[in-house]
């Protein structure tokens, strides 16, 4: 590959050659050349070399023993055996023994090989010449000539029609691949704008799976609710709950600063989307004294006593509130869907 003689101009010239070049008297900084090789103890003392040999052999033997240990552990320890090992704690005997024996078996091979290389193989440093990477002008000229000849023979420059149509065909053919990707998913349409909530849907307490009554929700408490009719074993449960999840708190009505919020609440019981408006984490770190709710993912903080407006962090707008009321039997119910999309902002949100 790089055996031909090459122009030297792309390598800086001022540095001298490597081997034992005698310093020119006028340059105190001249390269003195590679220092002479200094022998190691092992090079001079056969006993030391023998010692190294034994160490290497010992390491390789240890590796063999560790592999035997690995197989023995695999057979001996049941997978659920938990043992207490200070300071690790109650760990799996199998994981610990397999990992340690495998680790030792591998490490010892490596350590043996490196020790062998370091102490017994020659450590004479050798210099290898570099050759410039760029081709000589002759080579370049030959390549260019070959290329031109090839191009000429194909007549690609002359028969423009062929060239143009070929580029056209090549440019168009990947479109098939792009088109095929179309069915990766549906178009957005209004999907992000609606949830399962609708007028009259009861608020189901996620702890008990029973509908919530107004008196169940006391001041200072926190409850999570989902819409009536949604079941955990529904095929689309995760996709639905990703938009439907509600966070229910009760605030003394006179502490609610936002007028709309008070109207949309029922006697201070407010229902907010549990899905953060930043990137959609379930936000629910509710501080009942400050009424702040914090997102554990990126620390957006919302004030639930003031229309859930953003008071800190990267969220761009308030949490959507669900308008709720009480039906004839005293159960909390939704008075419609959210009036804005829940979850993260998107371009068409408006």
């Amino acid at each position: 590959m790089s055996s031909q003689e090459n122009p030297e101009e792309s390598l800086p010239a001022e540095q001298g050659d490597a081997h034992g070049e005698v310093a020119r008297n006028d340059d105190p900084f001249a390269d003195p050349g590679l220092p002479p090789h200094k022998p190691r103890i092992q090079d001079l003392d056969e006993r030391a070399a023998k010692r190294s040999e034994r160490v290497v052999a010992f390491l390789f033997t240890l590796s063999m023993l560790a592999t035997v240990g690995f197989i023995a552990s695999f057979v001996a320890f049941p997978i659920d055996r938990i043992v207490y090992v200070w300071p690790l704690g109650h760990v799996s005997a199998l994981n610990l023994s397999l990992g340690m024996t495998l680790g030792i078996a591998l490490f010892c091979i490596g350590a043996g090989a490196v020790h062998w290389a370091r102490t017994l193989m020659s450590d004479v440093e050798v210099a290898d010449e570099r050759h410039p990477i760029s081709a000589t002008p002759e080579v370049k000229a030959k390549v260019m000539a070959d290329f031109k000849a090839g191009a000429q023979e194909s007549a690609i420059g002359r028969r423009k029609l062929i060239r143009t149509t070929m580029f056209g065909a090549l440019a168009l053919v990947p479109l098939s691949g792009v088109v095929l990707l179309r069915d990766l998913g549906p178009l957005p349409e209004k999907r992000l704008r609606t949830t399962s909530w609708a007028k009259g849907k009861l608020l189901i307490n996620q702890n008990t799976m029973e509908p919530l009554r107004a008196e169940d929700v006391v001041v200072g408490s926190l409850t999570f609710a989902m819409p009536e009719g949604l079941k955990e074993d529904d095929h689309d449960f995760n996709t639905k709950i990703a938009k439907d999840a509600l966070m229910i708190v009760r605030i003394q009505p006179d502490e609610i600063k936002d007028k709309k919020q008070r109207e949309w609440a029922h006697e201070g019981i407010v229902a907010y989307s549990k899905i953060c408006t930043h990137v959609g984490c379930p936000i629910s770190l509710y501080e009942q004294q400050t009424h702040h709710v914090l997102c554990p993912c990126h620390q957006s903080t919302f004030d639930l006593s003031d229309g859930a407006r953003v008071i800190f962090g990267p969220a761009g707008h308030a949490l959507p509130q669900l308008r709720i009321g009480v039906n004839g039997e005293g159960y909390l119910e939704a008075l419609g869907d959210f009036d804005e999309p829940v979850g993260p902002s998107f371009w068409e949100r408006g």
Partner: peptide, 12 residues
């Protein structure tokens, strides 16, 4: 303190 409560009415 700031922890919300989970009363028996919602968390039996």
């Amino acid at each position: 303190q700031n922890m919300p409560s989970f009363p028996d009415s919602t968390m039996p």
